[in-house]
């Protein structure tokens, strides 16, 4: 943790959220909304990128669209959980129908996209708090 500590900046104090979203308009909007909430937001546009990102530079939380070209959301989710099981992944999707099944996946939360992003924001708050808490515990 030496390096990280040396690079301490206001940016570095903000929780880092990886948003995986294939539609650019949506991705930028989410970034806008979440940055306003005070998160550091990284954007990737497909599953492979997301996995590479998680491997190289693990974020505090992942917001993952399910329906994507190439490696789809579910596969990506499984890979991420494999690599970094401690990172909460929020499934963020236009499909409300899958909600009943998401528990069988290893996602932390299932959020149906809505234009006010209230549900997403609430879910992030909830899971970041918990993971930060656990991190604190870990450090303690």
């Amino acid at each position: 943790m030496k390096g990280e500590g040396a690079m301490t900046t206001p940016e570095a104090n903000k929780p880092r959220i990886l948003v995986v979203e294939d539609e650019e308009a949506m991705a930028l909007l989410i970034q806008d909304v979440l940055e306003e909430e005070g998160y550091q937001v990284e954007l990737v546009y497909d599953g492979d990128e997301a996995i590479r990102f998680v491997q190289e530079n693990p974020p505090d939380l992942v917001v993952l669209d399910i329906n994507m070209p190439g490696r789809d959301g579910v596969e990506t989710l499984n890979r991420i959980v494999e690599l970094r099981g401690s990172i909460p992944v929020i499934l963020h999707t236009a499909y409300s129908a899958y909600k009943d099944n998401f528990m069988t996946w290893s996602a932390a939360e299932y959020v149906v996209k809505s234009s006010d992003f209230e549900n997403l924001k609430q879910a992030i708050r909830q899971h970041l708090g918990r993971s930060q808490q656990s991190q604190v515990d870990h450090h303690g």
């Binding site: 949506m26 329906n67 236009a94 996209k113 809505s114 006010d116 992003f117």
Partner: peptide, 24 residues
């Protein structure tokens, strides 16, 4: 239901984007 789900998904993304930007 299945049709609706597909339609909804296809519609929801742009709708969310429209709503989201308008809100912004």
């Amino acid at each position: 239901g299945q049709m609706a789900a597909h339609v909804a998904h296809e519609i929801r993304n742009p709708l969310v984007a429209i709503g989201g930007y308008a809100r912004r």
